[in-house]
C-alpha cells in the first residue's frame, strides 16, 4: 500500500470508513496495542502512581485503552473528527457498563481492570501547537502520528516550522523530568533525521530507538525524548530562529522519491547474490537452508 500521508490531510484520510477499520480489524488493534505497551515501557513511569498522560494522535483511543489498563489518566487529541467519534463511542460504552474487556494475553498480573474510561478527548491539530498550561503532563505518547507533520497540504504549511512549533510546545507542557515516547513511521531516513533534529533543537534530550531493524515490516521507530532542563539553555541559544530555517527545503525531494539510475540486468542469480540474500534472510530470523557446495549450482539440463 502506498503511504496514506501522501493522499492529503490526516482528517481527510481517516474518514468514517477508515476509522471503523481501527476498531474492527484485530490485526490493527494488536499492532497498536503492542506498540503502546512498548512505548509505556520506554516511558519509565513510576509504577505505583497514576500519571497524567497526553496522547497525541489518539485516533480511536486504542492506545488510551492500554493506558487505562495500566491505571493512568489520559487526554487524547487528534485531528480526525471521525476517529474521535469512534473513541467517544468506546468511552461512552465504558460508562454504560457494557465494556468488553480485551483479553490480556501478555503478563497481565499488574494490569488494572477499569470499568470506566479515564480518558478525555480533544479535537486538535498538533502542528499548530498544544493548548495546555505549562508543565501539565507527567508523560506524553504518540502512536503512528508524528510522520504526518512531515507533509504539507497547503502552501501555508511548512513541515519544519510545524515540527518546531510542535516540539517547542511539547517541551513546555511536560513536567520536569518527564519523558515523551513518540512512535512514527518515517518514509525516508532523512525524515527520521529531520524529526529528531527538530526535537533536539528545542532542547529535548534523547534519540530514536529502532525495534526490529532488520525487518521491513516489523521495524518500528520510537523517538524517546526527555526534558533535561539544566542543559537546555545552551542548546536554545545555539538554535537558529524559525525564520532562518524556513528556507531549508524539507521533503520536496524525498516525497517524489529520487530518480534512481536504471541499472542494467546482468546475470542476477549469481552465487554471491544468493549467498548474500540468504544471509539477509537469516538476519531477519527466517529459517534458511545452510550454504553448501550445492548452493546456486545449476540443475542438470534436460535432454
Amino acid at each position: 500500500m502506498s503511504r496514506p500521508e501522501l493522499s492529503g490531510h490526516a482528517s481527510i484520510f481517516y474518514n468514517e470508513r477508515e476509522a471503523r477499520k481501527y476498531n474492527s480489524s484485530s490485526r490493527m488493534v494488536n499492532v497498536q496495542r503492542e506498540i503502546t505497551l512498548r512505548a509505556i515501557e520506554l516511558l519509565l513511569l513510576s509504577p505505583d502512581k497514576a500519571s497524567y498522560i497526553l496522547d497525541i494522535g489518539c485516533g480511536s483511543g486504542l492506545s488510551g485503552q492500554v493506558l487505562e489498563e495500566k491505571g493512568h489518566i489520559w487526554v487524547g487529541c487528534d485531528v480526525s473528527r471521525d476517529m474521535l467519534q469512534v473513541a467517544h463511542e468506546r468511552i461512552d460504552d465504558s460508562f454504560d457498563g457494557n465494556n468488553k474487556n480485551v483479553e490480556n494475553d501478555e503478563g497481565s498480573d499488574e494490569v488494572h481492570d477499569p470499568p470506566l474510561s479515564t480518558g478525555d478527548l480533544l479535537h486538535h491539530d498538533m502542528g499548530t501547537g498544544l493548548p495546555f498550561r505549562p508543565a501539565t503532563f507527567d508523560a506524553c505518547i504518540s502512536i503512528s502520528a508524528l510522520q504526518w507533520l512531515c507533509y504539507s497540504n497547503s502552501a501555508s504549511q511548512n513541515p519544519k516550522r510545524r515540527l518546531l512549533r510542535f516540539f517547542s510546545q511539547l517541551y513546555a507542557i511536560l513536567k520536569k523530568s518527564a519523558r515523551a515516547v513518540l512512535q512514527f513511521y518515517p518514509e525516508t531516513a532523512e525524515q527520521a533525521v529531520l524529526i529528531s533534529e527538530c526535537a533536539t533543537a528545542v532542547g529535548f534530550g534523547g534519540g530514536v530507538v529502532v525495534d526490529y531493524p532488520n525487518s521491513t515490516k516489523a521495524k518500528k521507530h520510537y523517538l524517546v525524548l526527555s526534558c533535561d532542563r539544566t542543559s537546555s539553555k545552551q542548546v536554545q541559544q545555539s538554535m537558529p530562529s524559525v525564520e532562518e530555517q524556513t528556507h531549508v527545503s524539507v521533503s520536496a525531494a524525498s516525497r517524489k522519491g529520487i530518480d534512481k539510475p536504471i541499472r542494467k540486468k546482468k546475470g542476477i542469480k549469481t552465487k554471491e547474490w544468493i549467498i548474500k540474500k540468504k544471509e539477509t534472510q537469516r538476519k531477519r530470523g527466517k529459517s534458511v537452508r545452510p550454504d553448501t557446495k550445492y548452493t546456486a549450482r545449476r540443475r542438470p539440463t534436460k535432454f
Partner: peptide
C-alpha cells in the same frame, strides 16, 4: 463532549 481546538494557519 469533544472540544474543537483547531486553529487556522492565520490564527497562530
Amino acid at each position: 463532549g469533544i472540544p474543537n481546538m483547531i486553529l487556522h494557519e492565520d490564527e497562530i
